[in-house]
Each structure stands twice: as structure tokens, then as C-alpha cells.
Design a protein around this nucleic acid. Structure first.
Lengths: 334, 334
DNA sequence: GTGAAAGCGCTAACAA
DNA sequence: TTGTTAGCGCTTTCAC
């Protein structure tokens, strides 16, 4: 496809003007005659001129591009987050480069480096693994503003937008207790991430406030995958304990748990109530419509992006630590 | 964040070398002394040098960036496609800029323009609306190679990777008939897109080959949304016809259809069998595990990207029109 | 083995 | 109102 690409120079020559004049005319800068502007615009159109953003970026030192690093883009949970980011970015005239870090710290660091090399104007880290205090120096070393979404940094020294995991978890467990459950098992996500330990805090708090003693034997761990939820639930069932309800650290785990329960010939919610966290897209249409805690995923992506863009444009300097309240979504599984 | 960014020049000065020498050393070009290379690399590291891809792009006229335009990134169907594209791109050293076109032709065109301005090396159009013969000129006018995925262009003049919609549809309907259904309703996607009309072709062909007469009254239309599937199914039930099975143009429609059937107090598959198309992520865990036609979404994204990169790198010139065979996935809903 | 110079396409001071 | 000049950071001849 050997296309002759038109530049400002070509237009300038065609019109017997200077490159500067053409540039200014095209960008609507003041100081160029009305008529000239007309002629330039017309000629540009006729010649099928496409501004070269790369050259502009080099000159202005801004790319109008944001980097979005997602811990695992195959995880459908992120779809609305990405959507929110893309939408907000587009509205402000930015594009996003999407990178998948596969929940791998090294891969994520590499993505940051690549995006920094590409001179993105800012970075959105979705469920980042680089959330430790010790990652701050690494992230800051690029001199690029960044914001955490979904999963916050350990310190409040960085900007972030997340949902209130303690509160979400508390709401759910409190609801389960108030509606009659006592032996509430908890299959939490098995990772050393604050989001998940926070959910544990909420769980324990709800127990405490309702005068129910915490029992460590009710605790199980799983990775955020259907099979893992399935096998954890199998273990619970095999343990022979008297289980009223199972609160799952995420909807994906809940899906697996429901499978195991149904397979065992038990009924949801009559025999065992099941609850999740996240409210993924088809949570309402699962085996049994799932009661869950809704994270405002789209909004989190959106707000994070807006904050980042404000930062880039120097709108404000203060740290933005935003914690959105999640909603309880009651469906048939409880 | 006022960071002093290190350039080749800084390194050159630090070492008393020329910019050229440093550039060559860093890129491992021949013609620079072993020892010098060492020194340069070491200094670059020490000074925390980050190559400026923008400058490089301007000079070399390549950005190592691909544009991915998705007709609707909120539609979780695309998640695996995006994943496949991102993965393949990353493996070949490319990044992707993701744009959402909201199934809107004008928005999609605007995305193409923006991406062309950003000088992406190639374009991946996922379920594009610009697939008509009349869009060819527009797309070609940018001089950027592109490939269609999921939905092909009307002509074979463009590269594409899709699944065989006729065959997929045929397989499903043939299976439904062979396993006892006769009155097979079809809720197809209501859009003038070849993918969907192809599914109709498969439906009719299966009927014909099995000696069943085609009945127009069995045909319903819906948009790819749960509510639309739901209301279409309601209409079917209200029609009073004797329905053995419902083949849905996509899984999302099938979800809605299942809701309507269950709500009517009927059993799936005992009273009505339900089948979908796509095999979205949680199809196995829906109300009733869904029998469907699996499009190789990840693979389509991957192959499309590989073809595009080959094109960019001048590996081959021949048109690549790839039609992958979809698989029947039998689950409980039939 | 190394360096000087040109230039990718654009914007931004500063002149005219 | 328009043009001249410089330069963003890099790669690429071509000369030494």
C-alpha cells in the first residue's frame, strides 16, 4: 500500500504559503486571515490531509494516549471497567493502549516500561499487582501520572478508585445473618491482596455485630475460577459441617460452588444459600440467579480515568482516594 | 512530576561519544567496539534511559501499534477476541489501541481516522459495520493494512477471519432435527449483516436436507440483548404454536428466551429445547446449561492479528480469507 | 570504529 | 497577517 502521505509542507507549497501559516490555519489559531483559513482547510480536505500525531507528539511532548494495564483481560469482570475507561478517555480526546499483565508482576512492570517508552500521558492500573509500598518508587520513576482502579495501592500516597470491600462484605454477611443464616461459610479469594483481606474484615465484623462467634473452620480459599470454587465447595460439603450459607469472594467462585451444590443433589437456596461478590454480567441468569455485591465497575473505570486526565491537565494536585459504596443485589440464590 | 528525561544526547555527552555511536550501541548494530557497547549500555542503565518511541516512530515511520476497533466492547462476547488480539500483538512486539465503535458506522469511521492519525501500523476491525463494498474506498484511503475479524467484509477483496456461520447454524439445526425436534423456531439477530443471514441459510439448509418444510411463521427477530430474546420468546409463546425447540441467533438472546420459558412455567429441555450461538463465557452455568455453537473467538482474534502483522511486515501479499469451522457444544438445554 | 549532518512532520518563538 | 528559524529525539546515509 504505497500511499503518498500529505504533509503540511505539501499543502503550503500547493498554496504558496508557509508551513506555519498552514499549521495555524488548520488548528484555528488566531492571527491568520479568514480567507486564508478557508483556502487552507479546503485544500487540506481536497488533498486528503491527515495530521501526523506522531510528529505532533514529539513536538508537544504529549500523546493523548493513556495506558490501561489490566491484570487479566480475559477475566470478563474487567469488561465494564475497560468500557468505562475507554468511554471517558474518548470523551476527553484520549485513546487507550490496552495491556494484559496476566496477574504477573514482572509482565506488568514490563508493560509499564513499554507504555512509558511510548510516552503515554498517563497510566491506569486495573487490579494491579504493583500496589505495594515497595512498588511506588518503580512507578514514580517514569514521571508519568497514574491511578489505581479496582484494587488500591497499599498506601494512600497514590490516587485510586475502588469499591468499599469491607462494607460490601459486611452488608452481605449482615444480610445473610438477619435473614436467618448462622453457619456462614466463606470461600475467599486466596491471594494476599488487600481487597480480599478487607472482605474478610467485613465478614468478621458482621459476625461480631450480630453476636455470632467467628469459626475458622468456616473459612476456605480459592482462586477466582469456576473450578476452584467448585472444588472448595466440594471440600466444604465433604467436611460434614452444617452449612446454612456460603459467601463467595467473587461471583466466579460462586458459580463453581453452585455447581458443586447442585451436583450433590442439594437445593439453592433451600438447603444452602449462595452469595457472591462483583455482580458480573450474567449473574442474574445463572443456574440460580445470584445474590451478590455489586461493584460499580463501569463507574470505577470512568472515575479513575477522569481523575487521571484531570491530573494530566494539571487540574488538581490533591490525592484522590475514592472509595465507592457497593450495593447489595438480592436474587434467588439466597 | 517534573522528571528530567534522559536522551541519547545526554548519554553521548556523559561518555564523550557521538549520538550515533550511542544509538548504534544500544540497538546492537554492528560497527561499534565491544567495549564501547558495554560502557554505553551500562551508562544508559545507570542514567535510567528510556528510549523515546515517539521519536523513533517519526523517524522510522512505524509505531509498533495496532488499532483494534470493536463494535461494542461492553458486549462480553468480545472479551476473548480482544484477548487473542492483545496476546498475539504482544508476542510480536506490538501494542494495541482499543476503540469502541458502539455499533455505529460514523463512530467507527471516526475511530479509523483517529487511529490513522496516530499512525498505527495496521487495523483490526472486529464485527465492523464498515464491511460493505462501499466502505472499501474509505478504508483503503488511509494506506494502512487492515483485517476483518468475526464479521467479514462483503467482498473477498479484503482479508478476514471468521467462523463459518452457515455451517455452524446447519450443524445445530441438523442436530436438533436428528434428535427429535421438528418445529424449530429461530430467533435470529435482526440486522442486515451477512453473519446473520448466513445463519439463516444454515437453518434452511438443515431443514431442507432433513425433508422438513420451511415455515416462515417460525422466524422471529431480536437484537443481541437479553430483554430482546425474552420478549421474542414471549411472542412465540403467545402465538400458540407448537414449539419443540428454539434456536437463538446468539447466546444472549438464548438467555432471554430461557427466562421467558421458565417464567411461563415450562421446562427446558423437556417442554422446549433451547440452543444458542457463540458459546459465551458462562454458557455452561446458565439457568440451564446452554447447548450452543462455539465460535473460536480467541483464535479468530489471534489469527487475524497474525495475518495483519505478516501483512505489515510484507510476509505475503495474497488475500487471506479464513473461515474457521465452529463446534457444536451440547449441554443440558437440548 | 566512530562521528557529522540531514531530516522525519510538526509547533512555537520571534521577526517582519 | 504571515514567514523564518529552531528543535523535539531519534535513525540513517556517508565520510573519516
Amino acid at each position: 500500500m504505497p500511499k503518498k502521505v500529505v504533509t503540511l509542507k505539501n499543502i503550503a507549497e500547493e498554496l504558496g504559503l508557509s508551513i506555519t501559516a498552514v499549521s495555524k490555519a488548520l488548528r484555528g489559531e488566531p492571527g491568520i486571515g479568514r480567507e486564508t483559513v478557508e483556502r487552507v482547510k479546503e485544500t487540506a480536505k481536497r488533498m486528503n490531509y491527515m495530521p501526523n500525531s506522531v510528529a505532533k507528539s514529539l513536538r508537544t511532548n504529549t500523546t493523548k494516549t493513556l495506558g490501561l494495564i489490566v491484570s487479566d483481560s480475559s477475566f470478563s469482570f474487567f469488561t465494564p471497567v475497560i468500557e468505562g475507561v475507554e468511554k471517558a478517555a474518548a470523551e476527553y480526546g484520549y485513546n487507550i493502549i490496552l495491556c494484559n499483565a496476566y496477574s504477573n508482576e514482572e509482565k506488568e512492570k514490563e508493560s509499564v516500561r513499554i507504555l512509558a517508552n511510548k510516552r503515554v500521558d498517563g497510566l491506569i492500573l486495573a487490579a494491579s499487582m504493583l500496589n505495594g509500598e515497595d512498588h511506588r518508587e518503580f512507578l514514580d520513576s517514569f514521571g508519568i501520572p497514574y491511578v489505581f482502579v479496582i484494587r488500591k495501592s497499599e498506601s494512600d500516597q497514590s490516587d485510586y478508585v475502588v469499591n468499599d470491600n469491607i462494607n460490601g462484605s459486611f452488608q452481605m454477611v449482615d444480610y445473610l445473618i438477619k435473614t436467618g443464616s448462622k453457619n456462614i461459610y466463606f470461600i475467599n479469594i486466596y491471594e494476599k491482596i488487600m481487597s480480599y483481606s478487607d472482605r474478610m474484615v467485613g465478614y468478621k465484623r458482621a459476625l461480631a455485630e450480630n453476636g455470632i462467634e467467628f469459626d475458622e473452620r468456616f473459612l476456605y480459599g480459592a482462586k477466582p475460577a469456576v473450578e476452584d470454587g467448585y472444588s472448595a465447595m466440594k471440600r466444604i460439603l465433604a467436611s460434614g459441617g452444617d452449612v446454612d450459607a456460603v459467601f463467595c469472594g467473587c461471583d466466579v467462585i460462586a458459580i463453581g460452588a453452585m455447581e458443586a451444590i447442585i451436583e450433590a443433589g442439594l437445593k439453592i437456596p433451600e438447603d444452602i444459600r449462595v452469595a457472591g461478590y462483583d455482580d458480573i454480567e450474567y449473574a442474574a441468569y445463572l443456574r440460580v440467579p445470584l445474590t451478590t455485591v455489586r461493584q460499580p465497575k463501569y463507574k470505577i473505570g470512568r472515575m479513575g480515568t477522569e481523575i487521571l486526565i484531570d491530573k494530566i491537565q494539571g487540574k488538581f494536585e490533591e490525592r484522590q482516594n475514592i472509595v465507592l459504596r457497593p450495593d447489595l443485589v438480592l436474587r434467588h440464590s439466597t
